[in-house]
C-alpha cells in the first residue's frame, strides 16, 4: 500500500531504481520460496501419512476399540494389559533373540562377502549378481523356497545327512524354528553387502600402501585400515539392521505363522494378529508404541556408543 502511494506521488526518473530494487527483492524472495514447490509433496505426505498417524496412534492407544463397538477412553489400561500379557513378553523375547543373532551375523557375512567381491577376479559382475539375487528375491519368494529347504526331507536335512547328522524338523520344532529363520536371513544380506562394497571402493589406496611399507600383512591391513575406514558403513548397517529385525513379519507369517507354540511369534506379528485378527485396534496400537520405544532406545544407545568406535575421516560441511 505504502509503496504504491509513494510511487504515485513521486513519479519520474528518481523513483525507478527504488521500485526496481523492491521488485528485485520480491522476486528474490519468491525465488527463495521456490524450494517449497519441490518439497511440497513430501510435506503433505509427512503430515497426512506420518505425523498425523503418529498422533492418531497415540490417541487410539488410550481407547478400548474393538472394531464394531464405539471406542471408549480407558486411560493407560491398554499399556497395563500389554505389560502383563505373557505373549507380549514372549514375542519381545523372540524378537530380541532373532536380532541378537541376525544383526551381528549378517553384518559379518555381508562384510566378508563384500571384501571378496572387491578383489580382482575375472567375471566379477556375474559373481556379484549371484550373491545379490537372493536379496532381490527376498520376501515371499524366498520364504516359499526355504519352506522347502527346511522341510523334514528337504535339502538342509539332506546336507546334514551326508555328515551322518539326523536333522531336526526345523519349522515345526520349538527349538529349531527360530534358528531356521535366522539361517535363512543370512541369504538376504545383499543390500548391506552392496553398501559395504561401495564403501570399500572408497578406501584410499595409499593407506594400504603405507601399511605395506610398514610390513603389515593381509590381516594387519584389514585390521588397521579397512575396518577403521569402514566403521561409518558398519554403523549404518547396524542401525538399519536393528530397526529392520524388530519389524520382521513376512517370513514368520508365511513359514510358521508364529508357531510352533509361539516360538516364532515376533512382536510385529503379534500386533498384526491383535489388530487384524482380533480387531483390538487400541490394544494393538499400544503395543506398537512399546515397540517404538524399544527401537528408539536401541537406536539412541547405538548412536551414543558410536562415538567410541565410529571413525569419520572428515566432518561433512553443513
Amino acid at each position: 500500500m505504502a509503496s504504491s502511494s509513494l510511487s504515485a506521488k513521486t513519479s519520474g526518473l528518481g523513483a525507478a531504481p527504488e521500485r526496481l530494487s523492491r521488485w528485485r527483492a520480491f522476486r528474490k524472495w519468491i525465488a527463495a520460496q521456490e524450494g517449497w514447490v519441490f518439497i511440497f509433496p513430501w510435506v503433505v505426505g509427512f503430515i497426512l501419512l506420518d505425523l498425523g498417524p503418529y498422533i492418531f496412534a497415540l490417541i487410539i492407544s488410550f481407547l478400548n476399540w474393538d472394531v464394531g463397538r464405539p471406542p471408549t477412553y480407558i486411560g493407560l489400561r491398554n499399556y497395563q494389559a500389554a505389560f502383563t500379557d505373557p505373549l507380549v513378553g514372549k514375542s519381545l523375547w523372540n524378537t530380541a533373540y532373532y536380532t541378537l543373532f541376525h544383526v551381528p551375523g549378517s553384518t559379518v557375512i555381508a562384510f566378508t562377502v563384500a571384501g571378496l567381491l572387491n578383489q580382482k577376479v575375472r567375471g566379477m559382475p556375474i559373481w556379484r549378481t549371484m550373491y545379490y539375487i537372493p536379496s532381490v528375491t527376498s520376501g515371499v519368494g524366498m520364504a516359499l523356497i526355504w519352506i522347502w529347504l527346511f522341510a523334514p526331507r528337504g535339502a538342509m536335512n539332506g546336507l546334514l545327512g551326508w555328515f551322518g547328522i539326523e536333522g531336526p524338523r526345523w519349522l515345526t520344532s520349538t527349538t529349531w524354528a527360530m534358528p531356521a529363520l535366522i539361517i535363512m536371513s543370512f541369504w538376504g544380506v545383499g543390500s548391506s553387502m552392496v553398501i559395504f562394497l561401495a564403501g570399500l571402493q572408497g578406501v584410499p589406496q595409499h593407506l594400504y600402501e603405507a601399511a605395506e611399507v610398514d610390513g603389515g600383512g593381509w590381516w594387519a591391513k584389514v585390521r588397521h585400515v579397512t575396518i577403521p575406514m569402514m566403521t561409518p558403513y558398519i554403523f549404518l548397517s547396524l542401525i538399519l539392521g536393528v530397526i529392520g529385525s524388530f519389524q520382521v513379519v513376512t517370513q514368520a507369517l508365511l513359514m510358521t505363522e508364529g508357531g510352533p507354540d509361539n516360538a516364532t511369534l515376533f512382536i510385529l506379528l503379534y500386533i498384526w494378529i491383535m489388530g487384524w485378527n482380533a480387531f483390538k485396534m487400541g490394544y494393538a496400537a499400544s503395543i506398537s508404541w512399546i515397540l517404538f520405544a524399544i527401537i528408539f532406545l536401541a537406536t539412541i544407545v547405538q548412536f551414543l556408543g558410536a562415538r567410541r568406535w565410529v571413525y569419520y575421516e572428515y566432518q561433512e560441511p553443513g
Binding site: W42, F46, Y54, F56, I60, G275, M281, A285, F292
Partner: peptide, 21 residues
C-alpha cells in the same frame, strides 16, 4: 531432519492409523 526421522522411526506405529484412515 523430518525425512531422516521417518527413515528411522518404525513403520509399525503408522500401520493401524493408516488402515483406519
Amino acid at each position: 531432519i523430518g525425512v531422516l526421522a521417518t527413515m528411522m522411526l518404525p513403520g509399525a506405529v503408522t500401520l493401524i492409523p493408516r488402515w483406519l484412515i
